[in-house]
């Protein structure tokens, strides 16, 4: 405790009083906390397993991310391996395969966005114009289905359908006199096939969000439009589409925020060395270098780069969307 010169007895008394009061408050707080845990311990028992799980399976790997800056060896472990700074990052940015993977990730995401984003909106608008409920339900049931089928099966269907010997695609091309093409070994065909498969699998399911937005459009808008003699085509363009525009913009922002999240599981299933040139993305690069090749530290550095860029994109998207809609995405 510091005693200032010239402090009179009155000041000293005040200080003592203040300390007394503080001690009292701390004690009261301690008693309150003690009481709280005695009364509410059950909540903490319910919470504990989840928190422990998060620490053990999601936060502990974040601690393990430090190997991106280390010369990792299995025998020394995460903590024992020596630091080497940014060496892995330098290696990565001098590595043609990694740079190619970044380029492919961006290109594939861009194509998925360009062709895949409008499809569910168009579908939702079209579903909204169907008058026969039974037809609408049946069609919806069908187009949602591929979303629930595993990527292995989808890949299996793609491989079978595009197979050079028996595939339906080559059979049909054969009718027009086109020679059989082994599509999955052709780099120029990988992206169209991958993006097309993604649209086929997800467009229907993604339309649900827009259908929900359409369901929220005020019916009186349509009623007055009918009085004014508007056609259905006009109502779709002038009422439905503008009304769901906020949802469309939010979904667009989210999609851009998740740019880096190309479904690499599907790529692993469909690509082969012959198509790496156009198909290899950052996550498949990490998988090959790290899990298949055992270069854990280098692959972890690539993963860290990916995760940081993705985090920044998602946060930026969240902020922009929040500002746009005044409602949080999460």
């Amino acid at each position: 405790m510091i005693r200032h010169q010239g402090a009179g007895p009155a000041t000293e008394e005040l200080v003592i009083e203040a300390r007394e009061a503080l001690r009292h408050r701390v004690r009261r707080r301690a008693i309150w906390v003690g009481d709280h845990f005695r009364r509410e311990w059950q909540i903490y028992v319910l919470l504990a397993p989840t928190i422990i799980w998060f620490i053990l399976f999601l936060y502990k790997p974040m601690y393990g991310l430090q190997i991106a800056f280390k010369d990792y060896s299995i025998f020394r472990g995460v903590a024992g391996s020596p630091w080497i700074g940014f060496e892995h990052f330098q290696t990565l940015f001098g590595n043609d395969q990694f740079l190619r993977a970044i380029k492919n990730t961006v290109i594939i995401s861009f194509y998925s966005l360009l062709f895949g984003f409008p499809m569910p909106i168009i579908l939702a608008l079209m579903f909204n114009e169907v008058l026969q409920q039974a037809f609408k339900r049946t069609a919806q049931t069908i187009v949602y289905l591929p979303h629930f089928i595993s990527s292995v099966i989808i890949a299996g269907i793609v491989i079978t359908a595009f197979s050079p010997s028996a595939g339906i695609v080559n059979t049909v091309l054969g009718w027009f006199g086109v020679d059989s093409i082994y599509f999955l070994t052709k780099p120029e065909w990988f992206r169209p096939i991958f993006v097309g498969t993604g649209i086929w699998q997800e467009a229907g399911f993604q339309s649900i969000v827009y259908l929900a937005a359409i369901a929220g459009v005020n019916p009186s808008l349509y009623e007055s439009a009918v009085v004014d003699g508007a056609s259905r085509w006009q109502m779709m363009w002038k009422i439905t589409l503008p009304s769901i525009m906020p949802t469309i913009i939010i979904m667009l922002i989210i999609r851009i925020g998740n740019m880096l999240e190309v479904s690499f599981e599907m790529i692993i299933l469909l690509y082969q060395p012959a198509t790496f040139e156009t198909a290899d993305v950052v996550n498949t690069f990490i998988y090959r270098q790290g899990i298949q090749g055992g270069q854990y530290d280098l692959a972890a550095a690539a993963g860290l780069f990916n995760a940081v860029v993705a985090f920044v994109l998602v946060m930026a998207a969240n902020t922009i969307a929040k500002r746009y809609s005044r409602t949080s995405l999460w």
């Binding site: 999601l58 393990g64 790290g290 899990i291 972890a300 993963g303 995760a307 993705a310 998602v314």
Partner: peptide, 15 residues
């Protein structure tokens, strides 16, 4: 937070 940031394939695998 784990929905926005995760350590990635390699640290998860090593863990």
């Amino acid at each position: 937070f784990t929905m926005w940031f995760n350590a990635g394939l390699i640290p998860f695998f090593l863990n």
